[in-house]
Design a binder for these strands. Structure first.
Lengths: 338, 338
DNA sequence: TGTATTTTTGCATACGTATGCAAAAACTGA
DNA sequence: TCAGTTTTTGCATACGTATGCAAAAATACA
């Protein structure tokens, strides 16, 4: 209490009411769209509010309405440009509908931040997760509280959790197809983590499509979605007796690392000695330092889909989880030979 | 109202009190550190709370205490890895002291997001801004509300706005010194925006130090802190009659772009034909695709300083703005010749 | 055991906004 | 002008938690 240090405390609806000559409820209604209030009264009130520099107290509003216009965003790794991009998109798209983001970053990719349960304390309208998995306990908590969960770019076996993702299986197929068409012989895959369904689906698409052309036993290494992990994976793959001439990576971020290792440590010419394909099409992929061929996963569309789900579930008070797949396409650049 | 759709509404302190056999105030005190309550009672209450899955309603708490434990973070460009890094650091350091981040991304670097004023509606404890400038009106609003503003990596002439930054002037000096020692002859500077004090200080340090060795008329181009802007700046500088053999860039992000253009469009060998130095030392700078020499600006330390300021101003209810400079150092890598 | 002291408890109220309800005001049509 | 209808207003109360205050309980001391 008593934080009204030097300055006077912020004006409230009552203050505005006094100045405008009305009641507190009138002021409240002036700010409520579709409320029963005369146009003239509303104008008088807004004028008075302006004079006082009145700003509605969203905490109080939230308490009264039981919704906060805040959405919790859990993101494991902001340094991965793909997720930074998604966050930026979410932020600007949410702003347009008057909602805000409460940011949670978690230390690990797979663990749910235990702090996340505290997000519910803020009466958030929804929980959007990227690169992190919802734990069953968290999902239960959210279900109890009627807070929808949407996972972006990660699958979930938990009932009631909605998901949004790119065309993961097709990404693998298309990458395989392109590499086959361009006469590659020895294929390899750099996976994310073993628990990532996204990585698994990309892998399945890739492996299955190659199998159709009779190519079996494609080596796989795990990059753990990190830069150093992918570097190790690359070292392992590239030092094998039968060195691959085509590497498909489960993310651009890992592909960058693989590119670095191939060029620098193995002195390989990309794309003549080895071609590399990623997934995501992050902005850096088009920078000429990487110039990476990749299957795109448009951050803007993913964000849009996630928000649609949230809006729909909140408005319909629906319990049914939704699942949306967002289209991508192969972007051919200089990291694969023609 | 009436959002208690399918499930029952979330348990409140009163529910817990009923189960534990006490009063609502007792429950409140059980959660208040240092409150007057018997150890046994507290345990009994916490037990009951656990059974019900009770989570304190932070909106209500905030309304009662007039502080939210929420800090507004305004960031213009999450895609710039330096700022993403700072955001990540802030997030994890704030988590440890039980505070959370409300994220605001603004479209432009220089403009303050008008939405930011609405942040105050959430009764945020502070406003941390990176890569964006506080407008005088915003500063006034914050002052009235007793909300401290801290700008990271941007100066401010507005009284009452605290700042945290790296050793900008020294960065320029050190870069100049290193390039002189390594026998470069033609120097150039890629600035951020004209309004950025950070860029200006780096420039001053660079130019002044060169002037001491009799070097005058160093060409300057503006990269606007964007990838494409820096590419244009690089094109302009590198196509001059007297091509520079040493370029200092006001940020790593821009240096990456300059590197790309030098290598790809001008077919220059880096570092033999042109050396490039950045500022920040973002993670990518060490990736071998760039391998950039740079003056570091540690995100962790910047975040820590900003949080210190916030904590101190909030605890002392102090009005006095604070200014902290964080040390950096030159990290020599492969983009400059030996 | 009884009194003085300290600790713990519950009551009542405050925080700022939203909203059902009834009263008041503004219209409508003849 | 007046009764009937619609719109607008204010009152009262609710949302969930924090806290000053006085009453109650526990403890200390003689």
């Amino acid at each position: 209490m008593s934080k009204k240090i030097g300055g006077r405390r912020a004006p409230t609806e009552s203050d505005v009411a006094k100045l405008a000559g009305g009641s507190q409820s009138a002021v409240s209604r002036a700010y409520t769209k579709g409320a029963s209030i005369a146009q003239k009264t509303r104008e008088k009130i807004l004028q008075a509010a302006k004079e006082l520099g009145y700003q509605p107290n969203l905490m109080a509003r939230s308490l009264a309405t039981n919704q906060s216009n805040i959405i919790a965003l859990a993101i494991s790794n902001l340094e991965n440009p793909f997720y930074a991009n998604v966050a930026q998109q979410l932020s600007s798209q949410l702003r347009e509908i008057g909602k805000h983001i409460l940011l949670f970053t978690s230390p690990s990719d797979d663990e749910t931040d235990p702090m996340l349960e505290r997000a519910l304390s803020y009466q958030v309208d929804a929980l959007i997760m990227t690169a992190t998995l919802a734990s069953p306990e968290l999902a239960l908590q959210c279900k109890k509280a009627g807070v929808p969960i949407v996972q972006i770019n990660r699958g979930s076996k938990i009932a009631g959790v909605s998901t949004v993702w790119g065309e993961n299986h097709r990404a693998g197929e298309v990458a395989a197809e392109h590499l086959l068409k361009t006469k590659h012989k020895n294929f390899a895959f750099v996976a994310g983590s073993k628990t990532s369904s996204t990585s698994q689906m990309r892998q399945d698409g890739f492996i299955e499509h190659l199998a159709k052309s009779g190519i079996k036993n494609v080596p796989i290494a795990y990059g753990e979605y990190s830069f150093s992990g992918a570097a190790n994976a690359a070292r392992k793959l590239l030092s094998a007796k039968n060195r691959p001439d085509a590497i498909f990576c489960a993310s651009d971020y890992m592909a960058f690392s693989v590119l670095d290792v191939a060029k620098r440590e193995f002195n390989l010419n990309v794309p003549n000695e080895v071609s590399i394909i990623g997934v995501d099409d992050v902005p850096e992929a088009s920078h000429s330092a990487y110039d990476l061929t990749t299957f795109s996963q448009p951050a803007g569309a993913l964000a849009k889909a996630a928000i649609e789900i949230v809006e729909q579930m909140n408005s319909e008070s629906s319990r049914r989880a939704m699942h949306i797949e967002v289209e991508g396409q192969l972007i051919i650049r200089g990291s694969t030979k023609a």
